[in-house]
Amino acid sequence: MKIILLGYMGVGKSTLGNALAKELEINFIDLDAYIEQKEGKSISDLFVNKAEISFRKKETNYLKQILNHESSFVLSLGGGTPCYANNMELINKYSKNTFYLKASFQFLSKRLYNEKNVRPLLQHLKHLDEFEDFIRKHLFERQNYYFLANFTINVETQSIENNITQILNQLN
């Protein structure tokens, strides 16, 4: 069983994925952490030193490695992973258990504003208005990819336990 969680940064993919994997007693893989471990550098460093397009190519290669594993797992993707190359097509080829963890831009803006200095795509945003506009536009651009997931879970109105129950009820 391969369960894949996707959605915008800060939506809780890693937190929910880790809890879900424990519930199912299977491996949890955070794609960003996997890349950092393989590359020996932080995602921020990979973005700064090599530019985003170079990072996205590496990300796709590591995604393919993980998807080709025979074992069961819960995989938490980076927020941009589904939006590059043919990643979403690849993801849906390997799993029918893909979940878009959905939240509004207001919810995400509140959650991410204090973390902006450790998020490579947000570090340049200085003012709250500018930050909210960026999140709104970026989320709008990415949602078409996110909606290609097999299921959508609205995470901002439920507890982690309720989100896990909802996912468990949808598993194929």
Rank of each mutant, 00 (worst) to 15 (best):
R136T: 13
K116Q: 09
G7C: 05
S95C: 05
E70A: 09
S44T: 14
E141H: 15
L46K: 05
I53M: 12
Q106W: 06
Y34V: 00
E39Q: 08
A33V: 15
L16V: 03
G78C: 14
D129W: 10
Q106E: 08
L128M: 12
E161P: 06
Y100F: 00
L171A: 10
N169T: 13
L67Q: 08
T165G: 09
L122C: 12
L122R: 07
L75E: 11
S14C: 03
N172E: 04
R142V: 03
E161Y: 10
N172T: 02
R111P: 03
A103F: 01
I43K: 10
N87T: 03
K38M: 07
S109Q: 04
F99E: 05
A21R: 09
S104P: 01
H138E: 06
K13Y: 02
E89T: 15
K41M: 07
I135C: 07
T165W: 08
S109D: 05
K57S: 11
S44F: 06
S71N: 13
F134G: 08
A33H: 11
V155F: 00
G78H: 14
N27S: 08
N27E: 05
N163G: 06
R142I: 05
K41N: 06
K2F: 01
S14L: 02
L112S: 09
E59K: 13
G79M: 04
